[in-house]
Design a protein around this nucleic acid. Structure first.
Lengths: 194, 194
DNA sequence: AGTTTAACCGACCGCAAGGTCGGTTGCAAA
DNA sequence: TTTGCAACCGACCTTGCGGTCGGTTAAACT
């Protein structure tokens, strides 16, 4: 019962979880191996080195999950309401443990953008993709919004605030600050309407 | 010409710079020793271990600098205009290299809050102090602002957005995204006025 | 059945990290 | 002048990391 693809997926899944919780550098291969119950040889059969594993996790786990997470609220009939509901649901449904881990994209951005070009490029592409997604959907309903708004600017603003608020939560170990910021973010977004 | 205090200060200063650029974990003592031109014995004479050095850097370098940075704009007659000018000046005056390093407080928050309790406590205290500083000064001019605003919530919102925007800049390697977010942040803040 | 090869094993390597400790130096008080 | 001690030195230690590589196993094909 040797299934190469299954092994590979298991490695990606466990690695994604470890990197999310500990960060890329602090994640040790031996820890991944232990959780997957495989040997070092198996891992290095599927991935060239730790970096390539990191890239694969980003491209095959984080990026799809990220898009799958943002797309529905943004593509709702009313994207602003969609985003408000999206953020509010996070406040309510996420446990503190989950919240404190932060967004994988933001975490990697903070940790790896300045250190490794490969990560930087991938993260930047993801940021731009998300920005485009939000901006175009705001443009779609621009008739219901105030005039003279810069949608790309607004999209970056929203994402920045969201990422900043997850960062805030890390030090407080509770949802309170996150909820406060999200609440104000919703208030801001609603103000964009006519 | 042995000056213990001067040695200590030099260590703090160099460490602060290294930690700012590389992060706490990635900062190596040997690198600090080399830049200070001292031996490992000297460092361990002044600090118990790397953690204690980190705490000292936070308390004696980062915290004072942080307050010194935010206090003037916030305590201006018009704190909202003060903050707008403050952010705009950062956009204009900071080089990309500086900007990409991010805010030391936010960096440490991201990296260390979940890993070390000592750091977490100190960072949280700093966040709260800053929040209080901003909130009380908004309260001071509340007569010029719209009614029914939650100043603490707004203060956390502003700081979150600021930190999120420095995070964004790390992947883009230029000021553009930072400027965009800051511009929108100023627009938001001005809207708080009656 | 024999052969080939992808998939996997795990002992081993080099390295750099944080940290230790016995020894040395220079200054100041007695 | 002697003595005491803070300030400093640097060789050495342990630990854990990412990475290598010769060997083994299982399954698919001839």
């Amino acid at each position: 019962m040797r299934d190469a693809e299954q092994t590979r997926q298991k490695i990606l899944e466990v690695s994604a979880d470890e990197i999310h919780k500990k960060g890329f550098t602090a994640t040790s291969l031996s820890c991944i191996l232990a959780r997957c119950e495989i040997s070092k040889g198996a891992l290095y059969h599927h991935f060239q080195n730790k970096m390539e594993l990191g890239y694969a996790v980003f491209e095959e786990v984080y990026a799809p999950a990220f898009i799958a997470m943002w797309q529905p609220p943004v593509e709702a009939e009313d994207p602003i309401q969609g985003l408000c509901d999206f953020f509010s649901a996070m406040s309510k449904n996420m446990t503190c443990d989950e919240l404190v881990c932060g967004c994988p994209l933001n975490n990697l951005c903070q940790e790896m953008s300045g250190v490794d070009e490969g990560f930087r490029i991938r993260i930047l592409a993801m940021q731009q993709q998300l920005n485009l997604l939000i901006a175009t959907n705001l443009l779609r309903v621009s008739s219901q919004l105030k005039p003279d708004l810069d949608f790309s600017q607004i999209a970056y603003f929203i994402v920045s605030t969201f990422h900043g608020s997850s960062s805030l939560s890390k030090s407080s170990l509770n949802k309170e600050l996150f909820e406060k910021v999200v609440k104000e973010l919703c208030r801001y977004m609603q103000q964009l309407k006519r």
